Amino acid sequence: MTAPAAADVAVIGAGVIGAACAWRLAERGLKVLVVEQGRPAGGSTGKSAAGVRAQFTTLTNILLSRHSIEEYASMPESGYHPGGYLLLVPDTQWTAHQEAVKLQRQLGVPTEQLTPAQAQAHATFDPGGLGGCTYCGTDGYVDAHGLTMAYVARARQAGARFQLDTAVTGIRRAAGVWQLRTTAGAVEAPLLVNAGGAWAGEVGDLAGLTIPVRPARRMVFTTGPLSLPRPLPMIFDLGSGVWLRSEGERVILGRADPADVGWREGMDWTWLEPTLEAAMARFPWLAEATLDRRASWWGYYEVTPDHQAIVGRLPGADGWLNACGFSGHGVMQAAAVARVIAQEVMGEPPFIDVTPLNSDRFARVPAATADIQV
């Protein structure tokens, strides 16, 4: 019989979260083994629209994103592009949104408050029903695949090993270690990091643990080439849920379908009409655009009941840490989350308090407040 592969920490998943965690753990001198069912960034990460923003409403999310963006800005491989995020806020949400802006500024995020008329300098849109707009020029997007591969390279250089195209088929705790059964053989490690993305709930199931993460399909529609007066920042219309931004000469856009949950595959072209209807109400110029079906794509969000991530140790499961359930925020927050996970493993106080993202919150009443999802 072949002896199990031994490590100090087994990381399940090599998306941007798992790859970043592997690097931060390995640089601490820990023996790290990453098990990935496919290839790095082959799941939700590679299908992401790759937006990064610090315009959140809660302290923890603001800090996780701000510190992550700062790290991406220092990494040429990340493809960080500070094209800005423009949020279009309805009248009914404007008062609360202004409080969020105050918090963002207190935490070092240079968010601007704009009238709808002032925001037209960034994009042309119908201002009907808006109470105001906010813009942050350090928000933008990254190359999610390039970023992940940079973390993989750094992790390997620090000594981490990657078992790719390897599925985990069983997990149990025995003799003080997590024993993983995989398609490439057994793995043993006293510590396990669940960075399984949309599959994180199923990773928990393998160990008999409840991790409330499920997949939700998302569509990204791509236009043909457009002649626009200027590139569009990432724009999110909080009222309709429509988002869009420039991608070269084209525009990519989407809108979450709350009913599209579970392991559904392929493009849902029936969702195109309601998405375009909502989009054209705010951006009438889209009526002149063509659609490039071949350049459009779909992927999975990993969502939790409150659409917030699950980060940190799992009560009642010794040596199990979660870094999952980001609900569209994984690329935005991977860098900072990896530092937090490494600090928790080493027994150090995390540089950002992630208590609001601990899994035991689901036993509390009321549930944690949801944040902006795009």
Score class of each variant (00 low, 15 high):
residue 3 A to C: 03
residue 195 A to N: 06
residue 64 L to N: 03
residue 207 A to I: 01
residue 314 L to R: 01
residue 256 A to Y: 07
residue 89 V to L: 08
residue 354 V to E: 03
residue 97 H to W: 08
residue 118 Q to Y: 10
residue 168 V to M: 03
residue 100 A to H: 07
residue 256 A to I: 06
residue 113 Q to H: 03
residue 188 E to G: 03
residue 297 W to E: 10
residue 95 T to W: 03
residue 71 E to S: 09
residue 122 H to W: 04
residue 358 N to Q: 13
residue 199 W to M: 13
residue 188 E to M: 00
residue 17 I to W: 14
residue 238 L to I: 07
residue 249 E to A: 15
residue 216 A to N: 02
residue 129 G to A: 12
residue 276 L to Q: 14
residue 223 T to W: 10
residue 156 R to N: 06
residue 160 A to H: 10
residue 357 L to Q: 04
residue 295 A to K: 14
residue 236 F to V: 05
residue 111 T to M: 07
residue 266 G to C: 05
residue 177 V to R: 00
residue 119 A to I: 11
residue 276 L to C: 00
residue 358 N to D: 14
residue 348 E to F: 14
residue 47 K to F: 07
residue 190 P to A: 02
residue 236 F to M: 06
residue 112 E to A: 09
residue 204 G to N: 02
residue 251 V to S: 07
residue 95 T to H: 10
residue 59 L to A: 00
residue 14 A to M: 03
residue 72 Y to L: 13
residue 21 C to F: 10
residue 298 W to C: 10
residue 53 R to L: 11
residue 144 A to V: 02
residue 178 W to Q: 00
residue 160 A to K: 00
residue 145 H to G: 14
residue 118 Q to S: 10
residue 9 V to A: 02
residue 295 A to D: 14
residue 336 A to C: 12
residue 293 R to E: 09
residue 368 A to H: 00
residue 272 L to I: 03
residue 19 A to Y: 12
residue 290 T to W: 10
residue 210 T to L: 10
residue 207 A to C: 02
residue 100 A to P: 05
residue 314 L to D: 01
residue 126 D to C: 12
residue 42 G to A: 15
residue 354 V to H: 04
residue 285 W to E: 14
residue 215 P to D: 15
